[in-house]
């Protein structure tokens, strides 16, 4: 292998966001946000509430139409495509086939009226799988993987604790082997001990499946643990980007310095 190739194992981005802007009337949601994401890379987006990090996540994941700017993604079906220029059915197909979305509140990502097992299996069904034996086996495999008790496969999500609901949501979002997963404060509503276990699990899954992920969080410790790269947002603008340890250990922007110096030590 030539040296140049070895240097950049896969240099073509999976996702390319360029000049992404979202305005709500006169109010700026986010402005001129650009970044690339490569296979296996995890990007953290940090900032206080109202900084625009969730707006970016929603625009990139196709939930929200940007005012201007583009989101290019290497789709399985259409090759490189601007997500917002695809037809609605095509965009939904990309979301179903290539992506996962883990919400902060499991209720937003789960169907509360069907069983935990059905929640996990549903993405396979949505992709056209009709082989119930195979789907049930895949569901059992995934419940094991996220360390949930198989005997509860037919219980409704509301009978599970918050941490367990979040595990169901994670299994539901990974069972169809997505290549990119969006996570909005994935451990936000959980106890510290539950949060730590869940983060371990997420790290392992992301490494083993070679997933790319974008994680929105206001928790610097979660960002350091999960993300190789960091993007710091304030007032709808990206104020600093870089390797996570560089941004957190030697922050350059006044806001990042304030953010890092405000973290409580225990």
């Amino acid at each position: 292998m030539s040296a140049a190739l070895a240097l950049m194992p896969d240099d073509t981005p999976l996702l390319r966001v360029e000049g992404l802007t979202k305005r709500y009337g006169a109010i700026i949601g986010c402005e001129n946000v650009s970044f690339d994401l490569r296979p296996g890379e995890i990007l953290g987006i940090v900032g206080e509430s109202g900084s625009g990090k969730t707006t970016v996540l929603n625009c990139v994941s196709g939930k929200l139409a940007p005012t201007s700017g583009g989101v290019q993604f290497k789709t399985r079906r259409h090759g490189l495509a601007n997500i917002h220029e695809l037809s609605e059915p095509d965009r939904r197909r990309v979301q179903r086939e290539d992506w996962g979305f883990v919400h902060q509140n499991p209720r937003d990502g789960l169907r509360m009226r069907v069983s935990g097992g059905a929640n996990v299996a549903e993405p396979l069904m949505n992709l056209g799988d009709r082989h119930y034996g195979r789907m049930r086996q895949a569901t059992i495999d995934w419940l094991n993987r996220v360390e949930l008790d198989i005997s509860r496969i037919d219980h409704k999500p509301r009978t599970f604790s918050g941490g367990m609901q979040q595990r169901i949501q994670i299994a539901r979002n990974l069972i169809h082997a997505p290549r990119l997963v969006f996570m909005d404060e994935p451990t936000g509503g959980l106890d510290v001990s539950v949060q730590a276990r869940l983060l371990d699990l997420l790290r392992e899954l992301v490494r083993d499946l070679d997933l790319s992920a974008i994680i929105v969080t206001h928790d610097m410790a979660v960002a350091r643990l999960m993300a190789a790269r960091l993007m710091v947002m304030k007032g709808g603008h990206v104020v600093e980007t870089g390797l996570t340890d560089q941004v957190l250990d030697d922050p350059q922007h006044p806001y990042t310095q304030l953010l890092v110096s405000s973290v409580l030590q225990i």
């Binding site: 040296a3 240097l7 980007t241």
Partner: peptide, 18 residues
């Protein structure tokens, strides 16, 4: 790095991570 001198001060994050 693999026979080539890489300027880590200007390299994009994924190159430095690698």
């Amino acid at each position: 790095h693999e026979g080539v001198l890489v300027d880590i001060t200007h390299a994009p994050p994924h190159v430095l991570a690698n």
